[in-house]
Design a protein around this nucleic acid. Sequence first.
DNA 1: AGATGTGAAGCGGTTCACAGCT
DNA 2: AGCTGTGAACCGCTTCACATCT
Lengths: 203, 203
Amino acid sequence: MTTVTRLPLYLRSLQRLAVAHQATVSSARLAELSGLKAATVRKDLSYLGAWGTRGVGYDVDHLVSMTRHQLRPHPETPILIVGAGNLGRALSTYRGFSADGFQVLGLFDVARCEVGKSVGGLVVRHVSEIGGAVDGTVGAIGVIATPPSAAQDAADRLVAAGVGAILNFAPVCLAVLKEVRLRNVDVSVELQILAYRRTSGDS
Amino acid sequence: MTTVTRLPLYLRSLQRLAVAHQATVSSARLAELSGLKAATVRKDLSYLGAWGTRGVGYDVDHLVSMTRHQLRPHPETPILIVGAGNLGRALSTYRGFSADGFQVLGLFDVARCEVGKSVGGLVVRHVSEIGGAVDGTVGAIGVIATPPSAAQDAADRLVAAGVGAILNFAPVCLAVLKEVRLRNVDVSVELQILAYRRTSGDS
DNA sequence: AGATGTGAAGCGGTTCACAGCT
DNA sequence: AGCTGTGAACCGCTTCACATCT
């Protein structure tokens, strides 16, 4: 269901509304804030079993807790970052994570010379220690921020360690067990899409 | 057309094949390398007017130049990065850009104390200089790597400077002229999608 | 009046299946 | 035999339209 991919967007908009002490939102307003159509918002919320008031709209606080509950069953989702290069360091010091319920559990690298360095309160460990770091924790997410050549190895180690999902920033197509959810973020690909044909707008 | 979003993937796979001296590829093989279905590949390539040989496959070199030509009308697409924080610095030192035909034209920040610092051969300039940096160049792409609060201002400046597209890393929904293509990359959103329900795989 | 909830239509992309070429 | 090229079926998401409720 693609509704899931919009839930985080709703949550953000809703949190802003909550901060602005808006008690209620219409689907039209929420759509506008999230860059979507009103009908889409209503359909999505109805899937979640949302209960709006006709003629008024939805209760912001109720929607916030409902959306958040859908998005995070556990209070803190552990994150493991592999690759202590520029991107890996940028990610591990990103302060937005904790607000969204994530906690960086560890930062790893293959290069021995990187191991032991401290990055924003986190000590870089060797990739061989990934397994030990995950240990009992369930639902951990691995983030791959390595060069392309090291990405598959990183993925293998993360999968072996038992992570439930992987977010891959390396420009390669990874092979993983299909039980492991995988999403790719590739800056160069995004730029190439944007660079294509200077015509018509696309989301 | 969503074909465009797959072109960069094909190009990457094809370049690897070229390096490995593979003269020819079948749609099935290319699909496998790119994580797609064979039928999709054939449809996409036929849209480009590709000319494969039945019983054999496609000529790798031909496909590479055809795809590359589609993706980059100009040899070097100029990139302007706004925000010299961790992410902005990571992006401006990313070495993969030049290989994919992009050139970082400038790195900007609002904070006066950041201005003048040197980051990987690039001197951080104040955001007010964005307009001058773009000047005559056509088809420039702006990259927003600021905190959320500064993102809309960055977008406005980039649009005023005449960029054709914006890649936004800030966790906000930007308002831009609809002539300007916009794509959003939000790490927290990606993680939230991955964290959702520990069931069924999704791309 | 103003907004939700939702069946039904619409639309775009994916996948099938097979004819046709080498 | 093998693989492309493509019409047609399929599928799922989006959007409309409107009955329904406050």
